[in-house]
């Protein structure tokens, strides 16, 4: 399958503050293709440019140089902005600041209403979207009475109802508790695997990135690593050097290797780690 989003040598900087000093590039000469139907995690510490990158995908940010294309459409062409946002939906970090209506189902309907979808079809889309994120029973609830994870799932339903082919989530779990995080990640995986929606997940949680097909690591506006979770996490030293973390299982393997123990460096979770250690002990 082809790429739905294409970054071609893209740079971007934010406008200078009042003092007029030019800010450094937030995204620096990035080239990246996002394959249709894939699940890509973008990792990076705060200020690494990962959120800026996300906002370049649907014409919130327009590149200073280089070109971003979505389904062949150039994001710098204002006439295409609407069409681009019908293709790439976005979910933000703070669940409160993206829900516009006082009732859950009205909020999910907001996007399709803006697109001018006929009423009966909106109803259908809203019900389907709420079922997809497992929030159908809360359709009549008031958003402020929901938990963070539930609100975030409503926000995701709002994007699904627009039937975008790609969804970009900018640190959707940063403000949630562990249960909320689990709910949201499970929902995202389902969108990708069952509905075939392309997912770009911006995060700094390693355990979330592990679930993706591909992990892109950013530092100082550049892409410094790009590969499968296994490839990326096996280089734990490099990740830690740019302010990131690796799962404890991977850390343990790395620490053992340093002491000269022959163990695989790409262990992602505890079960793989337990298997590997048992293997070691048996062969001893």
């Amino acid at each position: 399958m082809g790429n739905i989003i294409e970054f071609d040598n893209v740079s971007f900087r934010y406008e200078a503050d009042i003092e007029g000093e030019m800010l450094p590039l937030a995204v620096d000469s990035v080239s990246l293709g996002i394959e249709q139907g894939s699940f890509v995690a973008v990792l990076g510490h705060n200020g690494s440019g990962k959120s800026t990158l996300a906002k370049l995908t649907n014409a919130i940010n327009i590149p200073e140089s280089g070109k971003v294309t979505v389904d062949g459409m150039d994001t710098s062409d204002e006439k295409l902005t609407d069409a681009i946002r019908r293709t790439v939906g976005m979910v933000f970090q703070n669940p409160d600041n993206q829900i516009v209506a006082t009732i859950v189902e009205d909020d999910v309907a907001f996007g399709p209403e803006n697109l001018g979808v006929p009423p009966a079809e909106i109803r259908q889309r809203v019900d389907d979207a709420l079922k997809a994120v497992n929030m159908f029973e809360f359709r009549k609830s008031e958003p402020h009475k929901l938990s963070g994870g539930q609100k975030q799932r409503v926000a995701i339903a709002g994007v699904i109802a627009m039937q975008t082919s790609c969804i970009v989530l900018d640190e959707p779990t940063a403000m949630l508790d562990p249960n909320g995080r689990r709910e949201v990640i499970a929902t995202i995986k389902k969108l990708n695997k069952e509905m075939g929606i392309t997912v770009i997940l911006v995060t700094h949680f390693m355990d979330e990135a592990v679930q993706a097909d591909r992990v892109v690591v950013m530092d100082k506006g550049r892409i410094i690593m790009d590969g499968t979770p296994r490839e990326v996490f096996s280089e734990s030293d490099r990740l830690i050097a740019v302010g990131l973390d690796v799962p404890q299982a991977t850390q343990l393997a790395a620490a053992l290797i340093k002491k000269g123990v022959q163990i695989s460096s790409d262990l992602l979770d505890e079960n793989e780690c337990i298997d590997a250690v048992c293997e070691l002990l048996r062969s001893k």
Partner: peptide, 19 residues
């Protein structure tokens, strides 16, 4: 529904395997 740290889980897992 609360977890222990992953590293502890690894050692608990090892014990379960009879180590």
């Amino acid at each position: 529904n609360l977890d222990v740290p992953q590293i502890t889980r690894i050692f608990l897992g090892l014990r379960k395997r009879g180590i």
